[in-house]
Design a protein around this nucleic acid. Structure first.
Length: 703
RNA sequence: GGUGAUGUAGCUCAGUCGGUCAGAGCGAUGGAUUCAUAACCCAUAGGUCGGUGGUUCAAUUCCACCCAUCACCA
C-alpha cells in the first residue's frame, strides 16, 4: 500500500535572494520527494516564503513599497529560482495568507485553552523617533564588559560576552540613531517551561529514528539532565508597528515568527488541499497515520525539535514523524564570501548558462544523512560532473546510438538479460533505494557510478566499432548496442530523482512513458524504435565557473551584510536585521567607525616578493610577482618605484590585500595591493613598505 | 568560555562494532584504443589514517589530553 507522506523544506525569508547554500536543502528534499513519487507513494512537498517581521517592514519602507508588494516580488523571484533548479514543489506559498492566519489563530486559541499562553510585562527599548519597540539586533551601543563601541544588543563581537540590550552603554537605535527609552510592554509567552512540555519533549525527542543521533545528543543538552528543566518560555508577540498577523483579541499585538512561520507549512498544505481535494485533517489530526517530515538546516534544529512539536502536541495536532537536519555549504572550503565571489545566487548560476543538474548531481554525490557541512569545491565540481555525468554516463548512449540509428533504422533487438552488468544493476537496485530512502545520496551515487563503470567495461570488451567494420557481424553489433542502451536506460532510471530533466530527455530519446522505479527491472522490447540521438548534456567549462565567480564578486566598497551561509526563520530575521542596521549605521555616522566584521573582510596576507621589475612607460610602478603560499602567486603593480630598486625587493616579505578586486591596468592585471606607509602631506618624503617580523610565512593571515 | 562535530593519498571523500581495509573517484604517469562530447579501457599512488600519551598480545579504529577547522549557545 502506498505511503502517504507530507514533506517540507524550511521557509526562506522574503528578504533576500536564493543562493547555493539554500539550494542544498531544497535539492536534498526534492531528490527525496521525487524518489518517493517514483516509487508510487503519495507524497506532497510544500514550502512557502516566510514573509513577516520587522526587517521586511523596514526594507519595504526603504524601497518605498508596501510590505505586501515587496513580499510578492520576492516570492516571484524565489519561485523562479526554485523552478530553475527543478525543485518540484506541489505548492510554494506564502505565510502571509488567510490559511496561515487561520491556522495560527487556531493553534493560539488551543494553546491558550490548554493554559500554555501567559502574558507578562517586560521592559524594552523604544525608539521615540520611529515610534517603535526595537528588537535587540536593532540596538547598538558600547559593550558593558569591554566597552567596545557599536556592538549589537545581544552580544559583543569584540569580546564575545553575552548580555541583554538593557545593559548596553550609550545605546542608540540602529534604525534612526535616536537614543532609545526603556518602556514597558505586555508580551505573550508560550510556556515551554511547563512540566507538560518538558515531559512530552523528553519522550518525543528520544523517539525511534525521530532525529539524527547528533541531533538527539544536542537536544539532550538543551533539555538538560533529567530532573532539571532548561527550557524557558518563548516570547511569541511583538508590538505594533509590525508586519504580521495581529493576535486575536489583542489589538496592537502581533504574532512573532514562532507562531506563524512553521505554521506556514500547514497553511501551504491547506491551500494545496483546497485546490486538489486532499484531506487536510487526514494529514494533521492527532492520530494521523500519514508521515510528516521536515527538512531543515541545523541552525533551526532547536526550533523544529522543541518548540514546534510542543506547540503541535498541545494544540491537538499530530507531531512530525522525523526532522532531518543538514549541514551548511562551504565553497572551496570556506564560508561563502561576497568578496571572493563565492556567495553565488541561484539566479546568477542560471543566468551564466550553467546546467542546474550539474549542481544537483554534485550535491547528491556529497550529501549524506548526517548534519555535517558539505563543501562545493569548484575544481572538483568541474572534474566530477565532466567525468561522471558526461564521460561515464551520457557517453554510453552517445557511443551506441549512432550505430542503431544509422545501421538499424533506430530499431533495437532483444536485450541479453543475462548480461553481467545488466544483472548487477538489478541486484543493486534495492540497496540504492535504501540509500535514497535514508538520504544517503552520496552512497547511492557511488553505487550507480560503479555500475556505469561496468557498463563501459562491457562496451570495451565487445568492441562494437570492430563489429561495425566486419561484414557479417551486423546482428552482433545490434545486440551490443541494444545491450548498452538498455544498460544506459537502467542507470538513468536510478538517477531520475537527481536528474529529472535529463531523465525526461532520455524518455523522449527512447520514446517511452515517464520512468518509474520499477521500470529498472524491465528492458526495451525487440523492435522498439528510438529517436535520433542528440547530446544530452554538455561539459562544464572552467571558464564558465570563473565567470560565475566573477559575476558574484562584490567589491569591498559596497556596504553589504556579512555573508550568511544559510539562515532561516528567526536566524534569517537576525541576519536581515544586521544588514538593515549596518546600512543604517553606515548612513548615520558617515562610516566613521568600522565594525570588526567589516575589517575582517579585508583579507591581509603575508606575501614574499618572487620577482620585481621596472614597468616600461610607467614612472611610478613596479611589477611584482608575489608568493602567497597556499594561495598561489599574484601579479601586483605597486607605485613604489621612486623609493625602491626592484632588484633589492626580491625575496622580501610584505603584507598584501589578497581579496581586493583585480584591477586592469594599462600594463596588465593587478591582483592585489601591497601595503606601504607615506605622509599624506608630503612633509616627510618617502614610501615605506610594511614588513613582518622574522618567522612569518607567505600566505599567513594578518589580523 | 561551554557544548557538539570534523581532521584518512595533490583534490573530494569512503571505511574500520580494535587484528589480510589502509581504500574509491578525480588529478598525475605509463600503456591500449578510436564507437563516443580528447570520452572509454588496462596498469601504477609507498598517505606516521591531525599530535601526544594510555588501555591491549594488537589501535588509524577504544580512552584521555592537546592542536586545527566548523557549528550551536534558546
Amino acid at each position: 500500500m502506498p505511503r502517504k507522506i507530507l514533506v517540507t523544506s524550511a521557509l526562506p525569508y522574503a528578504n533576500g535572494a536564493i543562493h547555493l547554500g539554500h539550494l542544498v536543502e531544497y535539492i536534498q528534499t526534492d531528490i527525496w520527494v521525487r524518489f518517493q513519487k517514483m516509487r508510487g507513494n503519495e507524497c506532497w512537498y510544500v514550502c512557502a516564503d516566510d514573509t513577516h517581521g520587522t526587517p521586511i517592514m523596514l526594507r519595504a519602507e526603504k524601497e518605498g513599497l508596501t510590505p505586501e508588494a515587496l513580499i510578492e516580488r520576492v516570492q516571484r523571484e524565489h519561485t523562479r529560482d526554485f523552478a530553475g533548479f527543478h525543485v518540484g514543489f506541489d505548492n510554494y506559498y506564502t505565510t502571509h495568507s488567510p490559511e496561515t492566519r487561520a491556522c495560527a489563530n487556531e493553534i493560539y486559541r488551543r494553546l491558550q485553552a490548554a493554559g500554555l499562553i501567559e502574558t507578562r510585562t517586560i521592559e524594552q527599548y523604544y525608539d521615540p523617533l520611529k515610534e517603535m519597540f526595537l528588537p535587540d539586533r536593532f540596538i547598538k551601543g558600547e559593550c558593558p564588559k569591554c566597552a567596545a563601541p557599536d556592538q549589537y544588543g545581544d552580544n559583543c563581537e569584540q569580546c564575545g560576552s553575552a548580555y541583554t540590550a538593557n545593559e548596553l552603554r550609550n545605546p542608540y537605535s540602529a534604525v534612526s540613531g535616536a537614543r532609545p527609552e526603556l518602556r514597558q510592554s505586555e508580551h505573550y509567552f508560550f510556556r515551554l517551561s511547563d512540566a507538560r512540555c518538558q515531559a512530552f519533549l523528553r519522550r518525543w525527542t528520544q523517539g525511534e529514528g525521530r532525529l539524527q543521533s547528533e541531533a538527539a545528543n544536542k537536544l539532550q543538552e538543551w533539555l538538560g539532565p533529567p530532573g532539571e528543566n532548561h527550557l524557558t518560555d518563548w516570547d511569541i508577540s511583538r508590538d505594533a508597528p509590525y508586519f504580521g498577523f495581529e493576535i486575536p483579541d489583542a489589538p496592537g499585538k502581533y504574532f512573532y515568527v514562532w507562531l506563524d512561520a512553521p505554521i506556514g507549512y500547514m497553511g501551504a498544505f491547506r491551500n494545496l488541499c483546497a485546490r486538489s481535494g486532499i484531506d487536510f485533517d487526514e494529514y494533521w489530526r492527532a492520530d494521523s497515520m500519514t508521515e510528516l517530515y521536515h527538512f531543515i538546516g541545523k541552525d533551526i534544529l532547536y526550533f523544529h525539535a522543541l518548540f514546534w512539536p510542543a506547540e503541535l502536541e498541545h494544540a491537538g495536532y499530530r507531531t512530525p514523524s522525523k526532522v532531518f537536519a543538514h549541514g551548511f555549504l562551504t565553497v572551496d572550503g570556506a564560508k561563502m564570501s561576497k568578496s571572493r565571489g563565492t556567495f553565488i545566487t541561484a539566479e546568477s548560476y542560471l543566468a551564466q548558462g550553467l546546467d542546474p543538474e550539474w549542481l544537483r548531481y554534485y550535491y547528491a554525490a556529497k550529501l549524506s544523512a548526517s548534519m555535517e557541512d558539505i563543501d562545493l569545491n569548484l575544481d572538483d565540481f568541474i572534474a566530477r560532473v565532466n567525468a561522471d555525468l558526461v564521460g561515464k554516463l551520457v557517453n554510453l548512449a552517445s557511443r551506441s546510438a549512432g550505430f542503431i540509428s544509422q545501421r538499424f533504422a533506430g530499431q533495437l533487438c532483444t536485450c541479453d538479460e543475462s548480461l553481467r552488468a545488466l544483472q548487477a544493476i538489478g541486484e543493486k537496485q534495492a540497496a540504492i533505494a535504501e540509500h535514497y530512502e535514508a538520504r544517503e545520496f552520496g552512497k547511492a551515487m557511488r553505487e550507480i557510478m560503479a555500475l556505469a563503470d561496468l557498463a563501459n567495461q562491457y562496451v570495451d570488451s565487445v568492441k562494437p566499432w570492430e563489429m561495425a567494420k566486419q561484414p557479417g557481424r551486423e546482428s552482433e553489433l545490434q545486440q551490443a548496442c541494444s545491450n548498452t542502451l538498455n544498460l544506459f536506460r537502467r542507470l538513468i532510471i536510478l538517477l531520475k530523482p537527481v536528474l529529472p530533466a535529463l531523465a525526461a530527455k532520455v524518455e523522449s530519446f527512447f520514446n517511452v512513458a515517464p520512468f518509474t522505479w520499477d521500470d529498472v527491472r524491465s528492458v526495451l522490447a525487440a523492435g522498439h524504435a528510438i529517436r535520433p540521438y542528440r547530446h544530452l548534456m554538455t561539459r562544464v567549462d572552467k571558464k564558465q565557473i570563473a565567470a560565475l565567480v566573477e559575476a558574484n564578486r562584490e567589491s569591498l566598497t559596497t556596504i553589504a551584510p556579512p555573508a550568511a551561509p544559510q539562515k532561516h526563520a528567526e536566524q534569517q530575521e537576525k541576519a536581515a536585521a544586521v544588514a538593515v542596521a549596518q546600512a543604517a549605521v553606515a548612513t548615520a555616522n558617515g562610516g566613521a567607525h568600522l565594525t570588526l566584521d567589516e575589517f575582517m573582510r579585508v583579507d591581509l596576507r603575508i606575501a614574499q616578493i618572487r620577482e620585481a621589475r621596472q614597468v616600461e612607460g610607467a614612472d611610478k610602478l613596479v611589477q611584482l610577482l608575489l608568493d602567497l603560499g597556499p594561495l598561489g602567486t599574484r601579479q601586483v603593480f605597486a607605485g613604489i618605484k621612486t623609493a625602491y630598486d626592484p632588484a633589492r625587493l626580491v625575496g622580501r616579505l610584505t603584507v598584501v590585500v589578497a581579496n581586493l578586486a583585480p584591477r586592469k591596468m594599462r600594463f596588465g592585471l593587478s591582483e592585489g595591493m601591497i601595503l606601504a606607509a607615506s605622509d599624506p602631506d608630503g612633509t616627510t618624503p618617502g614610501i615605506f613598505l610594511l614588513a613582518p617580523d622574522a618567522g612569518a610565512q607567505p600566505g599567513m593571515r594578518v589580523k
